[in-house]
């Protein structure tokens, strides 16, 4: 008995709408992204009087070793003021600088940084963690 072969159906999935959804998601992520600038190893300071900060225009980190990083790039203390000034000029005038310092460092490590930032007229926000104890 001859077997009749079924005609193969050509299935086509419309991918155009999937691309649309994907690009909508991309736009969403681009708008809400705050790219990770700080990848230095630090133990953040704990405090009771902390709240949510506005997004940083410039990020300054002093790591465990006392090394200074501006926007993820290592700089010397003498160049800090100029670097922050340039970055703030490129951005908004009332730009805020997030300062994240390792909790174990002592005054000679962090005070010159605060003085340098204050010297260029930066609005400083100290970054830390909520002390839950």
């Amino acid at each position: 008995m001859p077997v009749r072969r079924r005609k193969k159906l050509k299935v086509m999935i419309p991918l155009a709408s999937m691309g649309d959804i994907a690009f909508l998601l991309i736009i969403f992520f681009m708008l809400v992204s705050d790219f990770m600038r700080d990848h230095q190893e630090i133990d953040p300071a704990l405090g009771a009087d902390v709240g949510e900060l506005a997004p940083a225009e410039v990020s300054v980190v002093v790591d465990r070793e006392g090394l200074l990083w501006v926007q993820g790039v290592e700089v010397g203390l003498h160049d800090l003021g100029a670097a922050v000034e340039i970055l703030l000029e490129r951005r908004r005038e009332d730009g805020i600088v997030h300062l994240n310092v390792d909790r174990s460092l002592t005054r000679p490590d962090y005070m010159p940084v605060i003085e340098a930032l204050s010297g260029v007229g930066a609005r400083i926000a100290l970054v830390g963690m909520m002390d839950t104890e």
């Binding site: 998601l25 992520f29 902390v50």
Partner: peptide, 19 residues
């Protein structure tokens, strides 16, 4: 974008230090 996005806003305090 999923890998590089951080949704969590940092905690801290803005301090007033005279310029």
């Amino acid at each position: 974008f999923i890998l590089t996005t951080s949704f969590v806003r940092p905690l801290g305090q803005e301090v007033s230090i005279p310029q």
